[in-house]
Design a protein around this nucleic acid. Structure first.
Length: 235
DNA sequence: TCGATCTTTCCTGGTT
DNA sequence: TAACCAGGAAAGATCG
């Protein structure tokens, strides 16, 4: 049902080798989702020491065929960001300069992807991805204020936990403090996160000017050092 | 490896 | 009484 096969070739910028990326993806247990693949994405390289990555939309090939809810979310999310990696100095292929193509899941999988338990060797995939991405300054751990900003700018994933009080002034209110802390804890893989700790982290931003003190309960305001909250959002 | 920065954790005391 | 706020202190995590 997913990943109708198209021929889409990608030329390695060093070796010049052409690879059918859908085939490469399927070889590793994932199915490319063709609708959103663009030539721009296929040309997006990040150069690292040992691996080269570029982001791709993909879906796990073993998607569950179950609930309507999943189908709905699939349409909403459209695709997940994955990484197609060429491992040119891989231990697996030391004898050759031939790239080994592998598709890895995003290090920040969407909610749907998390439920799908994408791979049995996800730990190893994550390790390689993180190592590769560090080289590009891409995929660094998100800052709390950026997480807050993105929630506000993306109501579809906000779940109603945050709400703009004064969009123009950057004033927002925490509607569901417990859920808000849970979301942050989930993002940081920290099950011990609660609103007490989260709010302390937010208060640290007063000093740096990322947030400003408002004086109302559960209400915060973006400061001069915060950027991007003026954007219209992702929709 | 190290220092800077950010985040977490714990805490006391105050307010709503 | 519970939930929240303010901020000090220190430790842990991350990054360049």
């Amino acid at each position: 049902m997913y990943g109708q096969q198209h021929s889409l070739f990608h030329t390695h910028h060093k070796t010049g080798e052409c690879t059918d990326i859908y085939q490469a993806a399927n070889d590793t247990g994932f199915t490319m989702f063709p609708n959103d693949m663009t030539s721009a994405q296929s040309e997006m390289y990040f150069k690292g020491k040992e691996e080269e990555f570029f982001p791709l939309p993909f879906l796990p090939s073993h998607t569950p065929q179950d609930t309507a809810r999943d189908s709905l979310e699939l349409r909403e999310h459209n695709f997940f960001t994955g990484l197609l990696a060429t491992v040119t100095t891989s231990q697996q292929r030391q004898e050759a300069e031939v790239p080994v193509w592998q598709v890895f899941p995003s290090t920040e999988p969407s909610s749907l992807l998390e439920r799908w338990d994408v791979s049995s060797n996800a730990k190893e995939q994550d390790r390689v991805i993180k190592r590769g991405m560090r080289n590009y300054g891409h995929g660094r751990s998100v800052h709390l204020w950026e997480f807050v900003r993105d929630l506000l700018l993306n109501p579809a994933e906000n779940c109603g936990v945050l709400k703009w009080e004064d969009r123009k002034e950057g004033v927002f209110r925490v509607v569901h403090s417990h859920t808000f802390a849970q979301l942050w804890g989930k993002r940081k893989s920290n099950s011990g996160m609660n609103y007490e700790k989260l709010s302390r982290a937010l208060r640290h931003y007063y000093k740096s000017g990322i947030l400003e003190h408002v004086g109302r309960r559960l209400t915060y305001k973006f400061g001069a050092k915060a950027s991007g909250w003026q954007d219209s959002g992702f929709q």
